[in-house]
Simulated assay, not measured.
Amino acid sequence: MTSPISNARGIAAMLFATASYVVCDTFMKLVTEDGVLPFEVLFLRGIFAVTCCAGLLLALGQWRGIGRAFSKASLLRAGFETASVLCYIVALAGMGIADAIAIIQTAPLLFILLIATLGRERIGMVRIGLIAAGFVGALLVAQPDASGFTPAALLAFAAALGLAIRDIAGRAVSSAIPALAATLVTNIVVLVASGVGMALTEAVVMPNGQHLLYLLASGFFVTLGHYGVFMAYRLGAPGVIAPFFYSFAVWAVLSGLIVFGNLPNPLALVGIAAIVASGLAIVLLDRQKARELATVPE
């Protein structure tokens, strides 16, 4: 059983991780707004992310697990995450960071729906209602007009679906594989895929020194984000830590306001709140059910 001090450290690690991911995305968006095309941004960030992740693996002595991390299950998971990231970087270039991240946060809701559909697991009417509320929130963020969703919003939804499928595929990945080793494999696959996408679809823009510094920082912070999530669940109880994953929304709104000088409109803010509230409610509902099952006598 985890102690209150350990849970507090786990919460701090999760808050640090989500902030790190948003810092990573902020640097990427700054570079795309300066004219460097999305796949090139992702490719260059991938070089730095692979380097940072490999260095962290060596520093922590987890490099021995690299061979196992190239299993079929791990590569399949990495493939779906790569598809998601490729969609996300293009979406991020075309919409506000808070809006893009809000739509991405429907991924856990999609995961539950897919598990219920593919695995035929019962999810109950309350969870269905909460999932529906989350998707209504996503619609408020995307705000389709008479012609439908914008291409950027559709790509953000595709990225969320890719993450949900990634998490389903991740169930088959052996728990014996260190999280950082699996992360390195994902970073390598993303690097290769974005490089192919860049070569096939984009005219390469020569990055300047500031671009490279931003992408170095982006690769560093995405690695910190992966490691922070890993440590959060190691330090604290999952039921206590999981709700703080939704701090993404707070950091994203702050980034949009402080760095880009824009704030989602009132309707989008309501939608962001609905997505976060529905996700938190599902996490807390599952936690309560787990407690009730734990107290039922055998």
Rank of each mutant, 00 (worst) to 15 (best):
A91P: 00
I101G: 02
E121P: 07
A138G: 11
Q105A: 00
Y88R: 06
Q105C: 08
A132L: 15
A83V: 14
G134F: 03
I131E: 09
A78I: 13
A102Y: 02
I104N: 06
G137C: 09
A93E: 08
Q143L: 09
L110K: 01
S74W: 07
G137P: 02
G96Y: 04
L130I: 03
G119S: 13
Q105E: 12
A73Q: 09
G119Y: 12
I103V: 05
T117W: 11
A73E: 14
M125K: 08
R122N: 07
A133R: 00
V141H: 10
F135V: 04
I103S: 00
A100P: 04
A98K: 08
I131G: 13
G79A: 12
I89V: 15
G134R: 04
G124K: 09
R127Y: 15
P108G: 14
L114I: 03
A132K: 06
F80L: 12
M95K: 02
C87V: 08
A138Y: 12
L114D: 01
S74D: 14
I104K: 04
Q143I: 13
I115F: 03
G94C: 02
M95T: 04
A83C: 15
E121S: 08
I89A: 01
G129S: 09
L75F: 05
A83H: 03
L114V: 03
S74I: 14
R122E: 11
G94T: 02
R122K: 15
A132H: 03
I89Q: 06
A133C: 13
R120H: 13
V136R: 11
A133G: 08
L139H: 04
R122T: 15
L139P: 01
M95N: 00
T106I: 09
G119T: 10
G137T: 12
I97K: 00
G94A: 04
A83K: 01
I89F: 01
I128E: 04
T82G: 14
T106V: 13
S84I: 07
G94N: 05
G94F: 04
F80V: 09
E81F: 00
Q143C: 09
A133P: 00
Q143N: 03
L113Y: 00
R77S: 15
A142E: 10
F111M: 04
R127S: 14
V136Y: 07
A102I: 13
I103A: 05
I103W: 01
I103H: 07
L118R: 06
A93W: 00
L75M: 14
I115R: 09
A107C: 13
G137Q: 09
C87K: 06
F111W: 07
T82Q: 10
E121Q: 11
T117A: 15
I128Q: 01
I112H: 05
P108S: 10
